[in-house]
Amino acid sequence: MSRFANQTVLVTGGTGGQGASHVRALHAEGANVVIGATSAERGADLAAELGPRARFVRLDVSREESWAAAVAETEKAFGALTILVNNAGVQNPPALIESTDRATWARILDVNLTGTFLGIKAAAPALRRAGGGAIVNIGSTMGMGGTAFYAPYVASKWAVRGLTRTAALELGRDNIRVNAIHPGVIATPFITEPAAGSDTPIADFYSPEPFAVPRLGQPADITALLLFLTSPDAAFITGAEYVIDGGLLLGPALQNGSPS
Rank of each mutant, 00 (worst) to 15 (best):
L26T: 04
A37E: 03
Q18T: 11
A196Q: 15
T164L: 00
G145L: 05
G143I: 05
E75H: 09
D233H: 04
G16I: 01
S21E: 12
F149Y: 15
P125L: 14
Y153E: 04
D199R: 11
T104I: 12
A95M: 10
R161W: 02
G246R: 10
G143P: 05
E64G: 01
R3S: 01
P252E: 01
F56E: 00
G13R: 03
S66E: 12
Y206T: 13
V160W: 02
S21P: 06
A88L: 07
S198D: 07
I83S: 03
P94T: 06
T100Y: 13
T238C: 07
S2C: 01
A195S: 15
I108P: 02
R215L: 05
A203N: 02
W67F: 13
S62Y: 01
F228V: 02
Q7S: 11
G217T: 10
G133Y: 07
R58S: 14
I181T: 11
I138L: 15
A72I: 05
E209R: 10
A220L: 02
G115I: 01
I135Y: 09
A103W: 10
G131F: 12
T141W: 11
A20P: 07
N86I: 00
Y150H: 03
L59M: 01
L26D: 04
L227K: 14
A212H: 15
P208K: 11
L226F: 04
F205M: 08
T38W: 02
L59P: 07
G247E: 10
T188P: 10
L216D: 11
T82Y: 03
V23C: 11
A80L: 05
N32L: 07
F4A: 03
R129E: 08
A69S: 12
I222D: 00
N87W: 06
W158H: 15
G139I: 04
A20W: 13
F149T: 15
Y242E: 01
Y153N: 03
A80Q: 13
M1N: 06
S66F: 06
V243K: 12
E64W: 02
N256A: 14
G115L: 04
E41Q: 13
S198Y: 09
T74S: 12
Q255L: 15
V213Y: 05
G145C: 09
L169R: 13
A122P: 02
G197R: 10
S207R: 11
F211G: 00
G251K: 11
A130Y: 09
V61N: 08
G16D: 06
H27C: 07
L169W: 03
G19N: 05
G30L: 14
F228L: 13
S258P: 00
T164D: 04
A234F: 05
L171I: 04
V61Y: 03
I83D: 07
A20T: 12
A106S: 13
